[in-house]
């Protein structure tokens, strides 16, 4: 094998590429590796497990879940995805209001679901890279029930979690369908839908 020459040109190219890649992602906490994505989900899961095991009231648990959700989730991506194509005609005030209302709604809805798993625990099994995301596989272990699959998706750029599958059921897709149906009920009125969303979940 030929010894590798460290030429000035390759050095400059490398440095430029490194600069470009950081410049393209201003201020992002990079989840550059699968290990980091797994660690993030590990922390998220341990926080969820603590809440499930706390034995608090439903209202208190939902507040805890909202805090966890805000800490670990990529809220703009989740909200934008749930609003789907209707987001294109929303004003920026509507978008902000939607993200807020949606965060509360999702915490109530999934907080109640996770509350059913009292006594259970989520275990992180491993991860793999899927396009612009890391897929982190987990298992929900329950007492006296068959375990089931929980899959988390962490964005490579954001380093935050943005989607969740429970036994293959895709949260973002489910919520996009739900938000779409809520909009249809209000004949496409985004403000009315946001008002409904504040009470839903």
């Amino acid at each position: 094998m030929k010894p590798m020459h460290f030429s000035r040109r390759s050095f400059t190219l490398g440095a430029a590429a490194a600069l470009l890649s950081t410049a393209a992602l201003p201020g992002a906490a990079l989840a550059a590796t699968a290990a980091q994505a797994e660690a993030l989900v590990g922390k998220l899961v341990s926080d969820i497990n603590k809440v499930i095991g706390s034995g608090k009231s439903e209202g208190a648990m939902i507040k805890d879940f909202e805090r966890i959700f805000k800490k670990y989730a990529d809220l703009p991506t989740i909200a934008a995805s749930a609003l789907g194509v209707d987001g294109r005609r929303a004003t920026s005030a509507q978008k902000k209001a939607f993200t807020n209302a949606f965060t509360g709604y999702i915490s109530r809805k999934y907080g109640k679901r996770f509350r059913e798993f009292i006594g259970g625990e989520i275990r992180v099994d491993g991860s793999k890279s899927v396009k612009n995301a890391f897929q982190v596989n987990g298992t929900m272990i329950l007492r006296n029930e068959a375990p089931f699959d929980v899959t988390f998706f962490v964005g490579k750029k954001s380093g935050k979690f943005y989607n969740l599958y429970l036994e293959g059921v895709n949260m973002l897709l489910t919520e996009r369908t739900e938000i779409g149906a809520m909009l249809d009920k209000r004949r496409g009125d985004i403000d009315a839908m946001i008002a409904d969303l504040k009470k839903a979940g």
Binding site: D74, L75, P76, T77, A79, A80, S81, L83, G87, A90, S92, K95, K96, F98, T99, V130, K131, N132, A133, Q135, T151, F153, G155, K156, K157, S158, Y162, N163, Y165, E167, G168, N170, L172, L173
Partner: peptide, 23 residues
């Protein structure tokens, strides 16, 4: 249940394909 993988699954959501401007 039938073992369709997430990568061949058409429902995979690509985080970079979502326009989050304003949210």
């Amino acid at each position: 249940e039938l073992g369709y993988g997430t990568d061949e699954d058409s429902s995979f959501v690509d985080p970079d394909a979502i326009d989050t401007e304003g949210f």
